[in-house]
């Protein structure tokens, strides 16, 4: 799950950036062949991304490739490059229906060399996509998670994008719930105000509080602050450790119900404690 905590976008046609993919502290890198690459350079970016993944595989990070959308003539070649590079995840932009994912998945299946372990993420960034999140999240198969794209969404809505983000509260909540219901990762939208570090810290704290698995980032300068926001506090860690100790002791002693500080230790509490300890590692 930690792989979804910080997911850093990097332009797919920039060799310097690609070479530093595993040095910037992000848990995942999203090698972008879509918006960050001019139409005339799609071919070169695709080749560069493939070679970066095969010859200079970033170590210790999840490698995601953002392909071009289904409405473009590029996406099939992009998928082929992602499969050849054995990307961990293919990120489909402008995802609006479960069928979009099925089409990508079929293309991966068909690709020579097979994409056995390759998973999918849906970038939901339109009102139609948001209205369909439950169906998208439930499409199963390779789908590992969903990412909210608030820039395109708010532009389409005619909403004003603010650091506080009231305009995307509904979309966040709706997507989050759909993901939770299906047990897939829910990843929050990037914070677009690149130099507003205070705003970033608040925005990331809000995402962590809501229960998002993590957050996408458009600047390497955002990695540290977002990681901090998703890091449990020392008090939380101490609490979680005591919960686990208590639960283990109860199991050893064959006790059914136990309590800690007057609170019943049941399965949801144990799961929460486990998650805190996992995030604290």
């Amino acid at each position: 799950m930690k792989a979804f905590r910080t997911m850093l976008f990097m332009p797919g046609n920039n060799p310097g950036m690609l070479a530093s993919a595993d040095s910037l502290g992000a848990d995942s890198v999203i090698l972008d062949i879509e918006d960050a690459v001019a139409k005339s350079e799609k071919d070169a970016a695709r080749i560069l991304v493939r070679h970066s993944l095969t010859d200079l595989r970033p170590q210790g990070v999840m490698c995601v490739v953002r392909i071009n959308g289904l409405e473009t003539p590029f996406w099939r070649d992009d998928v082929a490059a992602a499969v050849a590079g054995r990307a961990d995840v293919v990120l489909l932009p402008k995802c609006e229906r479960p069928d979009d994912l099925r089409e990508i998945s079929a293309c991966i299946d068909a690709a020579s060399g097979g994409g056995d372990g390759i998973r999918l993420m849906a970038l939901v960034e339109s009102s139609r996509g948001i209205e369909n999140v439950s169906a998208i999240a439930a499409s199963g198969g390779r789908l590992a998670g969903m990412l909210l794209g608030a820039e395109d969404l708010t532009a389409e809505m005619g909403a004003r994008r603010t650091p506080e983000g009231a305009e995307i509260a509904y979309a966040r909540g709706r997507m989050l719930m759909a993901c939770k219901a299906c047990g897939i990762a829910a990843v929050d939208t990037p914070f677009p105000f690149v130099t507003d570090m205070e705003g970033l810290a608040k925005d990331a704290a809000c995402a962590a509080q809501f229960g998002f698995s993590g957050k996408a980032l458009i600047s390497p300068h955002h990695v540290h602050a977002v990681k901090e926001a998703f890091m449990p506090t020392e008090a939380q860690i101490a609490w979680a450790a005591r919960v686990m100790d208590t639960a283990k002791a109860a199991e050893r002693d064959g006790k059914g119900a136990v309590s800690l500080d007057g609170m019943m230790i049941d399965l949801p509490i144990i799961k929460r404690a486990e998650r805190i300890l996992q995030m604290a590692e």
Partner: peptide, 11 residues
Amino acid sequence: TRDPLALAIAR
């Protein structure tokens, strides 16, 4: 510097 690598090293 705004160079992310230099900042990573500094950190």
